[in-house]
Each structure stands twice: as C-alpha cells, then as structure tokens.
C-alpha cells in the first residue's frame, strides 16, 4: 500500500517543540508554498493542519499550523481556529490565520469572540477586525464605546480604521466617557475622516475633522492636542482641495 508523503512530516509536526528538528517543518512549508498556487494540494494540507489544532500537539506545533493556515486557510479551518481564540497562549496565532482569511466566516468568528474571551484577548479581536475593515463589526464596537478602557479606546480606534459612514456615525455620536480618552476619540475621528476622504465622502470627512477642530481649540493644552488640531485643520484643507 502506497504511503501518503504527507504522513511523515505531519507525524513529526504533531510532537514538534521549539529546539526540535525543523526539517519536517521546512518540508511542510515548501508544500504550503506550492499549495498557495495549487488549490488541490491546499485541499490536502488544510484539513491536516486544522485537525492538528484540535489535538494535544505542543504549542509550537499549533503555532506552526496557524502560520501555514494564514496562507492556505479557508472557511473549513475557521471552526478549529475559533476553538483557540479563548486560549491565552494561542489566541494570537489563531488570529494570525483568521485575520487573513477572506470571507464572512472568519469575520463572524472574530466578532463572536469579543464578548467571550476576556478583555485582554478581546483587544486582539478588535485589532484584527480593524485590520480587516470589518464593517459588520461597527454595532459591536459602537456598544463598547461606552464601556471601560481599554476596550472603549480600542473600539474607537478600530472604528477609525474601518472608516465607513456607519463607523463615522458611531464616532460622531460618541463622547469620551472620561477626559483621559478624549485624545483617543479625536485620533479615531481623524483616522475615520481620512478613510472617508480617500473613499470620496468629503461631506462626512469634513464633519469629523470639524468636530476634532472644535474640541482642540486654538490654545491646545499639549503637544498631542496641538497635533490633533494640525490634523483636523490639514484634513479640512484637503477636503477643500477635493471639492
């Protein structure tokens, strides 16, 4: 009976730990590179990596699998990756793959994890949702704005990165729960306005820049506030130039 050439490297991976022989991993990396251009091969590799994530393999082995799924993972891997999001040791590596997987399943999994993984790990989910510019996360992030720091600040900054009209509406309506957060709110509004302007929504961008300009005032208290004022004013100039 013919032996599957993937058996040996995956068997070695299942017990791999840092300091071990990386030769089988290099073999798998090479196969993943080939699979990135050849869907049939990816179809053979992906379920094996996903299966390893639900096994008792060492942390190093699971982290390696997540790195490979960053390149070839699909919706089929999402359930296995979702199972790691609440694990403090592997949550980030699960996002390492999930953040880069297209499609609604990965985004939905990250959103659903926010309320269940604890504040520290939720910051990672928010970061990944921001990088994905996940517009479906806007209601979730909006709800976090009225909560405690640091989730509220992270949610505001994520809304800024998402930068859609819905995100702008959320940021425009929010008021910093504490003066300590005011700069973060203003930074988020600037980011959001920049994105809106880049997308051609000059009216919404102008409103956000004006909101920041109004809060910083001509006699800004410190360097950071002065920077926000510069950002708002130059943003308004850009809006005029694009009129």
């Amino acid at each position: 009976m013919a032996t599957d050439p993937l058996d040996a490297p995956f068997t070695a991976l299942a017990t791999f730990d840092w300091g071990g022989d990386p030769t089988p991993l290099a073999d798998l990396e090479s196969r993943v590179r080939e699979a990135a251009a050849a869907p049939p091969l990816a179809g053979e590799l992906e379920p094996r990596f996903a299966e390893l994530l639900t096994s008792s393999a060492p942390l190093a082995a699971k982290a390696f699998a997540c790195r490979q799924l960053r390149l070839i993972g699909t919706a089929r891997s999402v359930p296995a990756l979702a199972g790691l999001l609440a694990d403090p040791e592997l949550s980030h590596m699960a996002r390492f793959a999930l953040e880069r997987i297209d499609g609604p399943e990965a985004g939905q999994t990250l959103r659903e994890a926010v309320p269940r993984v604890g504040d520290e790990l939720a910051l990672g989910m928010i970061s990944s949702l921001a990088n994905r510019r996940d517009e479906a996360a806007v209601p979730l992030l909006d709800a976090l704005l009225s909560g405690p720091e640091p989730l509220a600040v992270a949610a505001a900054l994520a809304l800024g990165r998402i930068g859609t009209p819905a995100a702008a509406k959320s940021l425009a309506a929010a008021s910093a729960a504490s003066a300590r957060y005011a700069d973060a709110w203003a930074t988020a509004r600037i980011d959001c306005a920049d994105q809106l302007l880049a997308d051609g929504d000059r009216t919404a961008a102008t409103a956000l820049y004006e909101a920041v300009a109004a809060t910083t005032g001509p006699a800004a208290a410190n360097r950071r506030s002065r920077g926000l004022r510069i950002a708002a004013q130059t943003g308004l100039l850009d809006c005029l130039e694009n009129a």
Binding site: A37, H92, G124, S127
Partner: peptide, 16 residues
C-alpha cells in the same frame, strides 16, 4: 493569496 501576505495580525494588546 498574495494579499494575505500584506500584513500580519499583531499580538494583543498591540494594534496599529
């Protein structure tokens, strides 16, 4: 696939 390599998820609590 190439676009997956544009960036990497950052470890919490860090975000860009």
């Amino acid at each position: 696939t190439a676009n997956r390599l544009l960036d990497r998820a950052r470890r919490e609590p860090w975000m860009l």
